[in-house]
Design a protein around this nucleic acid. Structure first.
Lengths: 246, 246
DNA sequence: CCAGCGATAAATGTATACATATTTAGGAGC
DNA sequence: GCTCCTAAATATGTATACATTTATCGCTGG
């Protein structure tokens, strides 16, 4: 079973006694985030059955908070729950990933349209401008490619998130989160793409920003859809290069 | 607090001893469905804090399965969970409902496109045809209006669900479920609409079916979007008539 | 009378014991 | 050797006890 791992090397949440302040007030909350990240990273092979006792022993907690976390993640759709048969990791196919991008293109397009319709607040506009500037700098600089990639990934993330927030729809944010919740399709994989593609898409960011500032809702929606679809194409190319059949 | 109720008049899942066979193998699974339905029906006022002890006493179970259900529903987004402060019912505004329909129009449109691209299986085609026929009959008959409405609601439901399935995307189904998970925006409220509107939309069903059979993916997507948007407009009209400010 | 504070009550978080269901291992019978 | 059946082992479901946090209420003091 490739990718399967035992979660033994992990620290407990409230264990730190020094100045470190735990951002997770309960073990269950910590487990939700921790396990979600592990699942998105593909730490557990699809179809794997998660054993509550093993998990709780490896994480030094009782079964109760482990179950709490698993139940939340099942609600989120990352796990499936069969009564009396426990929780298993949901498998994803290539078509799942493609459909996630199609859906995300529509959702982020809707967010852009909503943002344009309402008009950008000064704060949102500032954040977007800054994300664009950061992206410009990351793509122009001659710094080490790893730093540049990380910097651009941050800027990209910030740009998309700001538009989602500007849209002001909780549901749309939830849908995008659902789309990003597909293991291995995470947006931060964008860094693995060709620099030329990334540069082209960054121009797309500028165009979207212009449409938002102009309050041109249809253009904002159309541009954002095309933008995400372009990411989708790059992702498909990269993935089919790495693993011809998934 | 209007709409708030105590869940005291409810039977337990495994309690029946006669011929009745419980479809829910565990108490938790039953609670998930039961509480979800109650939430969607608006049985608990938005912002209500759900007390685990009260719920478990009213439902004659221990806190454990109640917590399991609440955790799942929190993962689904129907409830919010604040550590050490329990679960509260998520509030929805009119704009939430509107955005849910916009999102749903996009998602169901995508499903229709996927279904057209893949082509309908004979089974799917049969189900859709039957839903259309049932709808025809429900709208033509001179039967009691309540029966007619219920019959059409079933046919409508069946039609939309069949297309979602034909699309074959779990994610799209999840997104639609998320959109329908908005309390008071449930699709079966469609029965409260004007008969003329319903008839017009039923024609839309026929057009969508034709596009699916013809394998015309762009038309299927476009028609489905317009169709759901039309439902949205009716819903807005009905809701603003019932409660001017929400 | 109100603000602030402290004790009590109540709610949630966690651990654990036990009940029930499932899986697995082993052997009898063919 | 294979299938089926049975029993032990294992896993999940549930209940309950206790710990910790939060909310409520009454009190003191100004």
């Amino acid at each position: 079973m490739p990718g399967a791992k035992d979660a033994d090397t992990l620290a407990r949440p409230g264990a730190e006694d020094g100045g470190g302040e735990s951002p997770h007030p309960t073990r269950a909350a910590w487990l939700v985030e921790h396990l979600r990240q592990a699942l998105l990273d593909g730490a557990f092979a699809p179809g794997t059955r998660l054993n509550e006792v093993h998990l709780s022993r490896g994480l030094n907690v009782s079964r109760t908070p482990v179950r709490a976390a698993l139940q939340m993640l099942a609600g989120e759709g990352l796990l499936t729950h069969q009564p009396n048969r426990g929780f298993t990791v949901r498998a994803v196919s290539l078509s799942d990933i493609i459909e996630a991008y199609e859906m995300r293109a529509l959702a982020e397009g809707l967010a852009a349209r909503l943002a344009a319709e309402q008009g950008l607040t000064p704060a949102a506009r500032r954040i977007l401008k800054r994300a664009l500037d950061d992206g410009d700098r990351a793509l122009e600089e001659k710094s080490a490619s790893e730093d540049r990639r990380a910097a651009y990934a941050r800027a990209n993330d910030s740009f998309h998130r700001a538009i989602l927030e500007a849209g002001g729809s909780r549901l749309v944010e939830d849908v995008v989160r659902l789309c990003q919740r597909i293991p291995q399709a995470s947006a931060h994989n964008v860094v693995a793409f060709d620099l030329a593609d990334v540069r082209a898409r960054h121009e797309g960011h500028h165009a979207i920003f212009a449409a938002l500032v102009a309050g041109d809702a249809p253009a904002a929606e159309r541009l954002m859809r095309a933008h995400v679809t372009s990411v989708e194409l790059s992702m498909i190319r990269v993935m089919s290069r790495r693993s011809p059949a998934i």
